[in-house]
């Protein structure tokens, strides 16, 4: 699925959270949405998921403009994972996956749940209550939920935040592997620059609600005369950015 964001603006009273951003994600590619905390990444994702009504601007998914009347239809091809939202704690992992498979209208629910369980190594805690899982286990379950409907467009908000290097690497490797074998476009918001370098084809840098730069990792590193993406991020984040 192709995603196109055109002149998107979100104002909360007098505060401009997102100011006239435009970008595109090509089908089957991964775009990294970067920027310091509070720069408008989550608000932008919220608008792309139809959870937040934009003040102005358009969001196109495969050339179809996201609107209230087609939101439900488009959502069935999309999904979202974030460590900041959780699944019902008192339900077992299996129950959660089953409920979400039904909500997304998945056919052959058991088969799909089994696939996710196998792929993400969930079997050992499948019948455990979700609230009793470790961060790493919760993260894998959240990823399983986000892929349960075989989405064509996936939003990942800091998917490896608070994970140890081993689990973090497992998640990144899995996303890479899954993407290779499936048709999937990803928008990744992350503060882990190594993760962004590894997974993203293109980067959009945001600051104070605006896009301040964009390009491939190499292009941005070269443009800002830095050694790696982390230093490039710091340079952009700490600079006094002037309006375009």
């Amino acid at each position: 699925m192709k995603l196109k964001v055109q002149n998107l603006v979100k104002k909360f009273n007098s505060i401009i959270a997102v100011n006239d951003i435009s970008f595109e994600i090509e089908k089957n590619s991964t775009l990294g949405l970067l920027g310091p905390n509070g720069c408008g990444k989550t608000t932008s994702i919220g608008m792309m998921l139809g959870l937040i009504t934009p003040t102005s601007g358009k969001i196109y998914i495969n050339d179809t403009c996201l609107e209230p009347k087609n939101r439900i239809e488009l959502l069935s091809f999309m999904n979202f994972a974030s460590p900041y939202i959780e699944l019902p704690k008192k339900l077992s992992v299996k129950q959660n996956l089953e409920v979400y498979a039904r909500l997304y209208g998945v056919e052959e629910i058991d088969k799909r749940v089994d696939e996710m369980v196998e792929d993400l190594n969930i079997k050992s805690f499948l019948y455990k209550k979700t609230g009793e899982l470790s961060s790493g286990q919760k993260n894998r379950v959240s990823l399983a939920k986000s892929l349960i409907n075989k989405p064509k467009l996936l939003f990942l908000d800091e998917p490896t935040a608070s994970l140890d290097p081993d689990v973090g690497d497992f998640v990144r490797e899995y996303i890479e592997k899954y993407k290779k074998n499936n048709e999937l476009t990803i928008l990744l918001a992350s503060h882990n620059m190594k993760e962004v370098e590894r997974l993203c084809n293109k980067i959009v840098m945001m600051k104070q609600g605006e896009i301040v730069d964009s390009g491939t990792c190499d292009q941005l590193i070269k443009k800002h005369g830095r050694q790696n993406l982390e230093d490039t991020f710091l340079k952009i984040a700490r600079s006094n950015y002037e309006h375009r």
């Binding site: 998921l49 139809g50 959870l51 439900i72 239809e73 959502l75 069935s76 999309m78 999904n79 979202f80 974030s82 900041y84 939202i85 959780e86 699944l87 019902p88 704690k89 008192k90 979400y100 909500l103 997304y104 209208g105 609230g131 939920k145």
Partner: peptide, 18 residues
Amino acid sequence: LEEIWSRNFTNLFIAPIK
């Protein structure tokens, strides 16, 4: 409230459910 307490609210509202 269960949805709010379990922080499942966002997951629910991004599911294709009217």
